[in-house]
Design a protein around this nucleic acid. Structure first.
Lengths: 214, 214
DNA sequence: CGGGTCCTTGAGTAGTCTCAACGGCGGTGG
DNA sequence: CCACCGCCGTTGAGACTACTCAAGGACCCG
């Protein structure tokens, strides 16, 4: 995601920040179809984007980690097509949607970087579609957890032995298109085969090579 | 997708076109990891974007219809993370990647429209992830065919009674994350329930309301 | 006429889901 | 401080969706 901190623009984008604020855990930040005038950058905590079918099945589209701009597409459209929910208590920086868009699109270099961010996001969702469409439950879960580990390490948010993972099995299920029960069984398998272990909100990766190879 | 034909820029973008060319049916246009210097806009025919797992399973990410810019993300990155293949014989307009990027990002209004195109694409892939993760085979196939019908009608490429659909059951299978055999069985069900019929490359939608409601 | 691709059908199977019950844990209120 | 309740994870049994393997027929093209 676009993290607004590219090179010499890092300081200038700060000037656009309206304020910072917080949301409680489990709080829904916005709903599908909303047309918010403000746009958030996640500063601390976890959130996720999701959509639901009419009969209530939920698909988690992505997890949002500190540094991510929540809802990059808002730079290109007024109305968002998905909901966003806080997983933990979060704190965010608030920007005006129109001001930020003017700022970014008004300069070729910044627009280009936004384009690069879109491209990166698009590559990530393509990868996810490959997962959802073609891979087994075991592979999907392994890849999701590995992806999160990589992202967190990149941001310096993971210890060597593992990291805090504030997801329930239901969250993992909704992100991978499985049921919570089956996620539980698959995690048990992973634990038994000494690949990783997830308990009490703490993920330990025991065999990083095999995990990355899946 | 970004169709480059927004209002008064329609004529100017034409000036950037290097040439037009064609590709035979089944020809692979580019491979995952390529860094092409040129970028295509599809003029006539069908193509699709896809990715494969290491063991050969293929996921079709999207179908590309006349008017679409092939590989929008190329405006933001040098290297594309998916392959593109012609489904039918196609003809395309060729642009220089860097020239087109300079043209678009150099003007705030054009950059904004590119952002809108990214947002639209992103909303479409989110919808697809909801399909892949949460919906049944029947729903996925119905929604894919309905989506294609809507897109083709929007472009004036569909007759009232139906339209030419140059997909094999394998293509539908790879786009929906199913097997070709199961797609065949599901299409039979749809035929039997008078929802639609697909035969000899021609799709007839018999009950548009029920189809759109799925 | 031969070979390839595509579609269809059948039989058996694997992977994942559904439903249900239970125990642990943490928060809340008495 | 304790009783209660709701959420979460675990386990089991059984069902079902979609897959695999296999064979045959239709069609097209060379």
């Amino acid at each position: 995601m676009y993290d607004g901190s590219g090179a010499e623009d890092g300081s200038r984008i700060e000037a656009l920040r309206l304020r910072c604020t917080t949301f409680a855990a489990r709080r829904t930040i916005c709903y599908e179809g909303d047309a918010p005038t403000e746009l958030f950058q996640l500063f601390d905590g976890w959130a996720f984007r999701y959509k639901v079918t009419r009969d209530g099945r939920r698909q988690i589209l992505s997890f949002i980690l500190p540094g991510d701009l929540i809802d990059l597409p808002l730079l290109g459209t007024e109305r968002i097509a998905h909901a966003v929910k806080a997983l933990t208590a979060i704190s965010v920086c608030v920007f005006s949607r129109t001001e930020l868009a003017d700022f970014i699109y008004g300069d070729a270099e910044r627009a280009r970087r936004a384009g690069a961010a879109f491209a990166a996001q698009s590559a990530a969702t393509d990868e996810q579609m490959l997962d959802l469409g073609q891979r087994s439950a075991f592979e999907r879960i392994a890849r999701l957890l590995n992806h999160l580990a990589v992202q967190l390490r990149k941001r310096g948010l993971a210890e060597a032995e593992g990291f805090r993972l504030p997801l329930t099995q239901s969250h993992i299920a909704d992100a991978t298109g499985l049921t919570a029960v089956h996620v539980g069984r698959t995690l048990r398998e992973m634990r038994k085969s000494k690949l990783l272990s997830l308990a009490q909100g703490w993920l330990t990766i025991e065999d990083p090579e095999s995990l990355a190879a899946i």
